[in-house]
Nucleic acid binder design. Structure first.
Lengths: 216, 216
DNA sequence: CGCCTATTTGACTCGTCTCAAATAATGTGG
DNA sequence: CCACATTATTTGAGACGAGTCAAATAGGCG
């Protein structure tokens, strides 16, 4: 089980193609906690995250969120449901104040039809994510919460680059797939073991190697 | 969380397109337990299951299989890794004697390039599976083993249509994502509750409604 | 028929969840 | 900008689901 976690469609395009996609939208401000789209709605296009981060999650039967992905600036989101011609199966909510642009389905598909490179990038991206999700399933089914937390922190440190990871305990728990209380206790362990540094909601990795060792 | 589980690319094509795909391959016999492809290999094309069933699984760190999907006659498998231009992240092994055809990557991609309907079907299928897998992740993270077993049996009853479900206890456990012993105990419960009928390895659902109720 | 593998059962342990309550942080209206 | 209300975080105690290990039994294949 190697762990290469998603990349997104745009970073794999040429400068020119990327620019063309970006020209299809007009950024609009979004506030923290604002919903971008919700489970059950019918997709009318895709969204480009111009700035900020967005959590993508499925809602379980008791309303518990399972966070599938934290999308960051530059990512295109919502294309999955659009291509499958289904309703959204997940919801997207802004984690921070930011800006998001919308690209309507007609414009986007027309653009795709006329551009083989982008079309292939889309197929490749869908296929990649599908493969990653197979690993994710295995991980959830076979790893302990402690191991999953270590993996989650490593993934998140890529999303947050050099900033500290900044999520509520509940969101972090829902990302790992555990109860909030369990997450808090494990976080305390990790801190005591010198793996991470925590200041309220800001979390920094001190010993990446140690996390890798725990992740197995 | 609704549960519409995968369909495959071919059933969504026109008769003529489907025929053209089928003409690209030559069926060859495969024996039970024969590997079709394995994690880490480089994909050279896709496989069409002409007859028989195939288990698709990821291997966890301790060698434990996580069965992602049981593919049946008529399904195209292995296209995920081919499109993502990565190695296989999962393995495929025949569950029964059967026949499988191979379609090389050049032939297949050339065919796709020249056929917009099929190309779109591929995108749609990838997108659909990706959505289903999000549900799967949520299910694994939030449901008890008992609930997951109920869901697994319902999914499998579609794969096996009117035949009885026929899997080793270990495969069934790996499909549900649990230990073999736990699976066996739950199977006994289900039998005592009149939900299923079991004769050695053959398993039949007696009370689908009851399973739905357990699944939640 | 007999070996090898699969299945089943029992006993035990441990990780993780739940519920409840205390404390801290955050945001909001005046 | 402060005080209050609300929400988030932390801790404790207890219960229970599910895993592991070991051993017995049954089934299937050569």
């Amino acid at each position: 089980m190697s762990q290469t976690w998603r990349t997104g469609i745009l970073p794999n395009l040429s400068q020119s193609d990327r620019q063309q996609v970006e020209n299809l939208q007009q950024p609009e401000k979004v506030a923290r906690n604002q919903a971008i789209f919700s489970e059950g709605q019918v997709p009318k296009g895709v969204f480009l995250i111009v700035s900020g981060k967005v959590k993508i999650f499925a809602t379980g039967d008791e309303g518990k969120q399972q966070i599938i992905h934290i999308a960051k600036t530059g990512e295109l989101i919502g294309f999955r449901a659009m291509f499958s011609e289904e309703q959204y199966r997940v919801s997207a909510i802004a984690l921070e104040d930011g800006a998001i642009g919308f690209i309507g389905k007609p414009e986007f598909t027309q653009f795709l039809d006329g551009n083989k490179a982008v079309r292939n990038a889309v197929i490749r991206e869908l296929a990649k994510e599908l493969g990653e999700r197979a690993m994710y399933v295995t991980l959830l089914a076979q790893k302990t919460v402690r191991e999953r937390l270590a993996i989650a922190l490593m993934r998140l440190s890529e999303v947050y680059a050099d900033e500290p990871i900044n999520l509520t305990r509940e969101d972090l728990a829902n990302y790992v797939g555990t109860a909030t209380e369990t997450l808090i206790r494990l976080l305390k362990d990790f801190r005591k073991e010198g793996l991470i540094e925590v200041q309220t909601r800001k979390l920094r990795i001190l010993d990446a190697g140690g996390l890798v060792r725990i992740a197995g």
